[in-house]
Amino acid sequence: MTDLPGYLVTGLGTGCGYALVGSGLVAVYRVTRVVNFAQGAFAVVGAMCAASFLTALPHGLGELAAVAVAAVVGLLVGMVALATDPRSALIVTLGLSVFAYAVEVLVWGDQPRSFAGLPGAVTIGDARVQSHYLLVIGVTLPVFAGMALFFTRTGTGKALTACASNPYAAKVIGIDVRRMGWLAFAIGGALGGLAGVLVTPVQQITFDADVTLIVNGFAAAILGGLTRPAVTLAGGLLLGVTQALVAGYGNAAHQTDVALGLMIVVMIWRAAQRQTRGPVEEPV
């Protein structure tokens, strides 16, 4: 049982990645009602850029630059996706994420990439855990706190929330709803990029890792109906820890299956709930 703390830390670290990808989905969905399939691609772009930038830039700067690139990619995806209705936008973002494969393979090749993170390991319980996991947790939690402050305390954050809450009324008072949607996509890009940058030192990333990332991110976000960042954080951590425990005490090969099975069960449970409550809008 003394392995448990170690599993918990690695699980929380992995879960932070899912939570960040999931919160990117939430940031975009709240404002635009678009489920952005390219959210996983942002993480891949962030990770690949960081791997390249870090050959020339010091740690910190290289990662930041990679997140910035991911944000710009997010903005571009948003500009294309918001040219159509939310339902078609899922297909558009799906197309863009496949197109991203072409660019990624062209620029970085199709082999797994990684780069060094925080070196060293710490002893937790009886287990040695890479220190980088602690860094992941230490960065993610403040980012979520910062997001909460941004959405509830700043004018721009409130304007974004206003678009999410009532896009028509937002237009009436002169908020440029489309531009706010672009901003949401840029935020989603940055969050996805951050996930990629943080997780890659402990988990190699390939160009097609976006599928696993987006599915796990969606699984995290779905717990909160795709609209609640705090629940998404909890969902991501739960997912990460579940996977770590399955891998530690069971069969590592099935860790993703269990998590994805969990997601399907949660969705069916939500479906049953909606059925009894009737087709009301999800709370925001």
């Binding site: 929330t161 206003a162 999410a164 809450s165 009324a169």
Partner: peptide
């Protein structure tokens, strides 16, 4: 029309 407020704020 229709009391269009921002319900979450």
């Amino acid at each position: 029309e229709g009391r269009q407020v921002f319900g979450d704020l």
